[in-house]
Amino acid sequence: MKLNKKHLIEQFDKAREEKAPFVFVGIEAEGVQETICIPSRSFHEKQAFYERSYTDELIHVMNKNVFIRGLSRGGSEQLDIIG
């Protein structure tokens, strides 16, 4: 399944509903993979950042070689889901 902005929004919404401690965003940037861990206190600001900085296809607006490759929410055990 190809991720899109709808999936990003759903992760943040579900994390709030479930009172999840984190949202995890897997990024690929110029061939390097990283996972960003966003604590619940930063959900609002980081969601707004991703919504304005990435296209509907989750490609960075200023660099097509940077994109969101995975999303998850929950505790640290969810990090393996991003892969």
Rank of each mutant, 00 (worst) to 15 (best):
R69K: 14
Q47A: 11
G70S: 10
A29T: 03
L79D: 12
L8Y: 07
R73K: 15
K5E: 02
Q33F: 15
E57V: 00
K6Q: 10
F67R: 07
F49V: 05
I81R: 15
G26C: 06
E30P: 03
C37Q: 15
F12C: 01
I36M: 12
G74E: 09
G75W: 01
A29N: 14
E45Q: 10
V32R: 14
A29C: 14
I9V: 13
Q33P: 11
S72I: 01
F67P: 00
A48W: 06
Y50K: 02
Q11L: 07
S42P: 01
P21V: 10
L8G: 00
E45W: 11
Q78T: 15
Q47F: 12
R73M: 11
I9Q: 13
I81Y: 03
R16C: 01
Q11N: 14
A15P: 03
A29W: 12
V23N: 02
S76K: 13
A15S: 01
K5H: 00
T35A: 11
I36Y: 06
R73E: 07
R16D: 04
A48N: 14
A48S: 14
P21L: 08
R52F: 11
I82F: 05
A20H: 09
I68R: 00
R69A: 09
F43V: 06
E45K: 12
Q33A: 07
S53V: 04
M62H: 11
R16S: 10
I27A: 00
S72Y: 01
G26Q: 09
E57D: 15
R16Y: 08
T35S: 14
G26T: 03
E57L: 12
E17M: 06
C37A: 15
L3H: 09
L8A: 06
G75I: 05
S42G: 12
R41V: 11
T35I: 13
H7V: 00
E57H: 07
E17G: 03
M62W: 07
R69L: 01
F67C: 00
E34S: 15
E34C: 08
K5N: 00
K5D: 00
R73Q: 13
E18A: 13
I27M: 10
A48Q: 13
N4A: 04
S76H: 11
E28R: 12
M1T: 12
R73P: 08
K5A: 08
K14E: 06
R69Y: 12
Q47Y: 11
E17L: 04
N4W: 06
H7A: 07
Q11P: 01
E57P: 08
L3T: 07
H7M: 02
I82L: 12
K46G: 00
D56P: 06
